[in-house]
Design a protein around this nucleic acid. Structure first.
Lengths: 169, 169
DNA sequence: AAAAGTATTTCGATCATCGAAATAGTAGAC
DNA sequence: GTCTACTATTTCGATGATCGAAATACTTTT
């Protein structure tokens, strides 16, 4: 197995990397799950909160239908989800001027607070863990994460063509 | 921000890496979700199948309680889960000799087949995506994935001390 | 104005999950 | 050796997140 005395103890194989990625995603799953359990939120609620905060950060609006699309959830489930989040004050419904069918979702202070509790400790831990990685190494990692995400996206796209020919007039 | 003309266009910051990691885990989530939807399995079933296959590959036995522990699921939910998987032939219950309270879970051919459908396309896509990474780069990536997983685990462990003083009866 | 389309919600049903209790079996105390 | 405590798994009843279909409210096209 030692392909070379140079690169130290056996460079990780595809399989090794796959395994590492797998344990990472499992752990990430648990993180969300536990955070949710701790705060009375379900998986979906946690994911939704993350999306809402992300949209808020970018200053983009978020509608129930956009949320439904991103979470791949039915419209009715989305209504129920928003009801839940609204009940605990993590989101608010607003009727924007203009198209009055629409509802704009905004994140009030309580939701921002919750988001901080969720992400700040993790961000801190990551920062500490990554302190030793230099610019060149970070570039490698970033490239790796990117191509891996794309690879998954490509494969996953195959399962769900789900195609509506999208005849948008 | 250009700290050096050497390292190319701006090395990724902690925040950049966090974002990349986040999109990766989201995508991984979707992968499991869609695969499940395509094959009539729920999220939990997919996770369980992955664990069962992993255990089978290592030649280790898997019991309902071990599964419950790893999935952080209640015993009753685990029974129902195994019932579901058993109904479609992805797992089988066996009574091993010795302690007759126990049940050993084994993965019959149908389950292995399902596992292949799940992992092989992904493994192929990863292999292609990672072809350009040399030994030194892989080592960096492996180290990154590892420390990141540990960081998450450490933070997540804080939310769920879960200690029951164990007052039974 | 009417018709067709879109955004969201309501309603009824399904099913994964839970907690508590039941069942079956093992091991320790005496 | 039997009784008691403990462990592994399952059964039972209830809760609630989700779905599909239909309803509601509004907009755009004809």
């Amino acid at each position: 197995m030692t392909r070379d005395t140079q690169d130290g103890p056996d460079a990780p194989s595809d399989q090794d990397l796959t395994r590492l990625l797998q344990t990472l995603t499992v752990e990430s799953d648990r993180y969300a799950e536990r955070f949710g359990a701790r705060h009375g939120l379900h998986r979906t609620d946690v994911n939704a909160l993350a999306l809402l905060l992300d949209a808020a950060r970018r200053g983009e609006p978020m509608s129930p239908s956009a949320l439904a699309r991103e979470l791949e959830l039915s419209p009715s489930a989305t209504t129920a989800l928003i009801d839940r989040l609204e009940a605990v004050g993590h989101v608010a419904r607003e009727k924007p001027t203009g198209d009055r069918r629409r509802v704009a979702l905004t994140v009030p202070e309580a939701g921002l607070e919750e988001g901080r509790k969720m992400f700040v400790p993790l961000a801190r831990a990551f920062a500490a863990a990554w302190a030793g990685f230099g610019p060149a190494e970070r570039e490698v990692v970033a490239r790796f994460l990117d191509v891996s995400t794309e690879a998954m996206k490509a494969v996953s796209a195959e399962w769900e063509p789900h195609e509506q020919p999208q005849r948008r007039r």
